[in-house]
């Protein structure tokens, strides 16, 4: 169901993702975020940021790009149609700001079996163009076994 030997495997770093101001506004609308620092450059700058800042869960968009590589990995053998999102966490060294160029690199932190199911935990490190850590995204997927 999930190949336990991929535990500890680290995938290639993704190409840089350029965080656009309009993308932040679009994402903020979508999660029903109303804080002016997502929309108004001057409001964000007044709080000390260079440009509008992303909502706390925006890093999922970056995480998704590195998840694609593991889901496509035949060695890992994860059937995406059987996947349920179990839990999610974002640890931010700083907020994501419009203009950031972010790369992400995913490591399979653990693979556990749980009866007929498997739980896979991924840890994605998101870095900016200066190679500084911006966010660590931790995601656990539950892969349901065949009934």
């Amino acid at each position: 169901m999930v190949n336990a030997s991929v535990e500890g495997k680290t995938y290639a770093e993704t190409d840089p993702y350029l965080v656009g101001r309009e993308k932040i506004r679009e994402f903020a609308h979508a999660v029903k975020a109303s804080n002016s620092m997502h929309f108004d450059v001057l409001a964000a700058q007044a709080a000390g940021y260079l440009d509008v800042i992303a909502p706390p869960t925006f890093a999922v968009v970056i995480q998704e790009r590195s998840l694609t590589s593991v889901l496509a990995d035949k060695e890992a053998d994860i059937d995406f149609s059987r996947v349920v999102h179990g839990d999610q966490r974002f640890i931010h060294a700083r907020p994501i700001v419009a203009g950031d160029e972010l790369t992400s690199q995913l490591t399979v932190a653990s693979v556990k079996s749980l009866g007929a199911h498997a739980m896979v935990t991924f840890e994605t490190k998101i870095h900016d163009a200066a190679k500084q850590l911006v966010c660590t995204a931790i995601s656990t997927l539950v892969v349901r076994g065949a009934e």
């Binding site: 620092m37 706390p56 179990g86 931010h92």
Partner: peptide
């Protein structure tokens, strides 16, 4: 939490279980 603190950049760690 964002509304309370007033600055979304101050959410330094956020996790949930679905």
């Amino acid at each position: 939490a964002v509304d309370w603190v007033g600055d979304p950049g101050r959410i330094v760690d956020y996790g949930v279980r679905f």
